[in-house]
Design a protein around this nucleic acid. Structure first.
Lengths: 150, 150
DNA sequence: ACTCAAATGACAATGATTTTCATTTTTAAT
DNA sequence: ATTAAAAATGAAAATCATTGTCATTTGAGT
């Protein structure tokens, strides 16, 4: 069982069971190109296994968030979007949001420059506010090419 | 009228009227130490002027957001929080969130280091994704001293 | 004071998320 | 394999933030 996805162990350790609905939700998140809403996930899950309920999707997401496997975002749409967290030890990624069409681009080509900078800032915050920093998120807002017109 | 707050002109230019409910909402936001929800604002506003309705609070916030006077955040609580935008020409600020108690610290001691870094990143994103970057937001997540125990 | 668009407030409607509870599934022990 | 206990599920109802409707009020310029 060497080729289980990274989150497999985390789920097991927690005592949670890897049930079919959970596998389905995880698979949908894994193959998603964009950030999905709970309903998006429900619709896809329902296609794969019609007995799955929306409630279970919500509960599964809640569990995965608590385990640090999924991250929840809200962008002022009145509904949340969900994304699989990056593999630990990976580079992390940031977000680029188009303010007009609400498109979100994830980018992960983090430069060394960027990594060094972030660790300096985290250091500074730790000293100044006595916070133990665990994570960070950077959002850039702008207008994409399509929305600016050709 | 030299000592009007910075947003006064922006409101006027837009053609919107500076009505009493709007003044009250702005005053509440100005004096808020933390990020308030619409209901928080409504409760305070209601104390000052009981005739004010929740709907008006929402509509006022919507207007102020459109004018760039107020910024809306969502942190996965299922409700939005609102904050007065920094005075134009100010430094901007970032956020430090305690994952346990959900406390949010705004910090604005942005270093030159940081400013230079951000402009480099924005440049890179512009070239790579053809996005015109207008704004950014940095969130740091961690655990505050109190929540770590003394 | 008067006019008319803008703004307001009460209430209803919407829509995402949560709760409830009876039923089904999974696990671990037999 | 069987079984008992705990965990997970699904359907439906409940909750709660936010938005829409519409009749009434207010404000800026005359």
């Amino acid at each position: 069982m060497k080729d289980q996805p990274w989150w497999y162990g985390r789920l097991k350790e927690s005592g949670a069971r890897l049930t079919e609905p959970r596998e389905i939700v995880l698979e949908i998140l894994r193959s998603a190109r964009e950030h999905l809403t709970a309903t998006d996930i429900y619709i896809q899950a329902h296609r794969m296994k019609p007995s799955i309920g929306l409630t279970t999707v919500y509960r599964t997401l809640e569990l995965l968030i608590k385990l640090g496997i999924v991250q929840k975002f809200e962008l002022g749409e009145g509904k949340a979007r969900f994304e699989l967290v990056d593999k630990p030890g990976g580079e992390g990624h940031h977000h680029l949001v188009c303010l007009k069409c609400r498109k979100i681009i994830d980018y992960s080509d983090i430069s060394n420059d960027e990594k060094e900078f972030l660790s300096r800032v985290e250091d500074r915050l730790k000293k100044k506010y006595d916070f133990k920093i665990l994570d960070h998120l950077m959002w850039f807002y702008g207008v994409c090419r399509e929305c600016r017109g050709s």
